[in-house]
């Protein structure tokens, strides 16, 4: 039919009707696709239905472990979901995510009768800090989250850890066990834990190397820190520093190192 000024109105209405029909059809189609997509995602990782919600996630054990790159961490990570009163919440959903290359088994789970979830973590293939994030929905429709650091130690950091275990940790680690008693409480001037990034991140590589090699006195610090320059080799001192840098919290960012502008 030819369009003339007389039947223009009719044609416009027809076009509008067709457009509306098309719109409805498209909407229906996309809705179907979307629902199919969602169902597909559900089938890949079935969503757990929370029987309860908590208001905080706490670490029971297994954080700050040192593993070698690509390995399963020696201990499981045990997390607990607590309510406002600090009581364990059984049946809450807990999800874990981590950086690229890691394996988390299971990545989401319901807390058990003790309000806890046990997870095995495998680190990625390159050394460095691996921050894992645990999340759990709370009663108000938001989520509570917690950052769990784990560390993959390369060769140098592994050497540093060994040197630390032999010479440093007796004083610098206040955690006392039957196998390794800590000397921390016996010292008049308390040494800093190697994790305290707010102290160590301010010290340059040269500063740290000086303190280790020449002792506390040489840099106007406590005389209780002996000089290790005649006991440890230069690579060993470098290794200890790289270990301190690895486990530092907040993470260490070297001033000399250049980071991506983004």
């Amino acid at each position: 039919m030819k369009i003339t000024p007389r039947n223009l109105d009719f044609h416009l209405r027809a076009a509008r009707r067709t457009a509306a029909q098309l719109g409805i059809l498209l909407a229906a189609l996309s809705a179907t696709l979307l629902s199919v997509g969602c169902m597909h995602r559900q089938s890949a990782a079935p969503a757990l239905h929370a029987k309860a919600t908590g208001s905080a996630i706490v670490i029971v054990s297994g954080d700050r472990q040192l593993g070698s790159p690509g390995s399963l961490l020696p201990q499981s990570l045990v997390l607990q979901v607590n309510d406002d009163q600090g009581n364990a919440v059984p049946g809450a959903v807990l999800q874990l995510a981590g950086p690229a290359g890691v394996t988390i088994r299971p990545a989401q789970a319901l807390t058990d009768d003790n309000g806890q979830v046990t997870v095995r973590l495998t680190l990625g293939g390159i050394s460095g800090l691996y921050p894992f994030t645990a999340t759990s929905p709370d009663a108000h429709g938001k989520t509570v989250s917690l950052l769990i650091p784990e560390y993959a130690a390369g060769y140098q950091q592994q050497v540093g850890f060994q040197v630390n275990a032999t010479y440093c940790s007796r004083c610098h680690d206040s955690n006392s066990t039957v196998e390794q008693v800590s000397n921390y409480d016996n010292l008049a001037v308390k040494p800093h834990a190697f994790t305290s990034g707010d102290i160590y991140n301010k010290l340059s590589h040269a500063d740290l190397s000086n303190i280790i090699a020449h002792g506390g006195v040489a840099v106007n610090r406590s005389a209780l820190m002996p000089a290790y320059g005649w006991t440890l080799s230069k690579p060993e001192i470098e290794a200890v520093i790289s270990y301190i840098r690895l486990i530092s919290d907040p993470p260490y960012r070297a001033p000399g190192l250049v980071y991506d502008k983004q």
Binding site: S68, P69, G70, G125, I126, V163, E236, A239
Partner: peptide, 23 residues
């Protein structure tokens, strides 16, 4: 070689224990 077995390579030359290869 996957990263988790990396320490094994040191063992080709070094038959004794090394500080940086606990595994």
């Amino acid at each position: 070689l996957p990263a988790r077995y990396m320490e094994s390579s040191c063992g080709q030359c070094h038959q004794g224990p090394l500080e940086g290869t606990p595994k």
